[in-house]
């Protein structure tokens, strides 16, 4: 069943042309620190370098905002699938496969463009051979996006209103950004100003546990939902 659903979701996504627009925006977000990095060429201070690569304002209003819109853009299932598969777990798996696929389309161009700008400005050797922990932060950003879009879909399944789901997920996003600005350790934006490797790993585990919990709650709401 898993393979068939995967094939179905790939064909459904390939007919959506709007995904191309969002991947182009993700590339622009990835390229945006180019001018700041040109200035920073001489210094090798890691914290200022990180604050330029992961510019929290552009991530909040560019990348995460876009990914929240993308995950609500299309319906992940058809009501015929309920009758064909005769299980409701099929809908949950199709939603999760669709989210991971569609966020990969946004995340992969961003990560590649961001790494490409770093190598073009001359920091590539410095990051890949001496400070390779930075590559973990890119993965952290991907799981942040997945967490927010799962929250969004939970609310969508309960309230049946896309606008309400988008507003609540955006409110969580902006609240975390506010916490970052007043120097309180936030969960979602910790990767923009990391203090230690252990802190990153602990928060990574918390996010993974939250994702598993949200998948269970999504499954529960779909089992009791009146289609």
């Amino acid at each position: 069943m898993f393979g068939k659903i995967l094939k179905q979701q790939i064909t459904l996504i390939s007919y959506r042309n709007s995904v191309i627009l969002f991947s182009i925006i993700a590339i622009i977000v990835g390229v945006s620190p180019f001018q700041d990095l040109e200035i920073l060429k001489s210094s090798e201070d890691l914290s200022t370098l990180l604050s330029k690569i992961f510019n929290s304002f552009i991530l909040c209003f560019g990348l995460i905002f876009i990914s929240l819109i993308v995950s609500l853009n299309t319906n992940g299932y058809r009501s015929n699938d309920l009758l064909l598969t005769k299980t409701r777990i099929g809908i949950t798996t199709s939603i999760i496969i669709r989210i991971t696929l569609i966020q990969l389309i946004v995340w992969v161009p961003w990560a590649i463009a961001s790494l490409a700008t770093i190598t073009l400005t001359g920091f590539g050797f410095f990051i890949i051979f001496t400070k390779f922990q930075i590559l973990i932060l890119y993965l952290y950003a991907f799981f942040v996006i997945i967490l927010l879009s799962l929250i969004e879909l939970n609310i969508l399944m309960i309230t049946n209103s896309k606008i309400l789901a988008l507003i609540i997920a955006m409110a969580i996003n902006f609240f975390e950004y506010y916490l970052l600005k007043v120097n309180i350790d936030s969960l979602l934006y910790y990767f923009t100003t990391p203090k230690s490797l252990l802190g990153i790993l602990i928060r990574f585990m918390i996010i993974l546990v939250l994702i598993i919990l949200l998948i269970f709650s999504l499954n529960k709401t779909i089992l009791k939902k009146d289609f």
Binding site: S18, L21, I25, I28, F61, G62, F65, I66, N73, K162
Partner: peptide
């Protein structure tokens, strides 16, 4: 625009594109 939800958010996305272009 074909999708109804994207059509509602089109001007918001447009402003984000202008915001990103303003950096270059």
């Amino acid at each position: 625009i074909k999708e109804k939800f994207l059509a509602l958010l089109s001007s918001t996305v447009f402003q984000i594109i202008i915001l990103l272009l303003n950096m270059f």
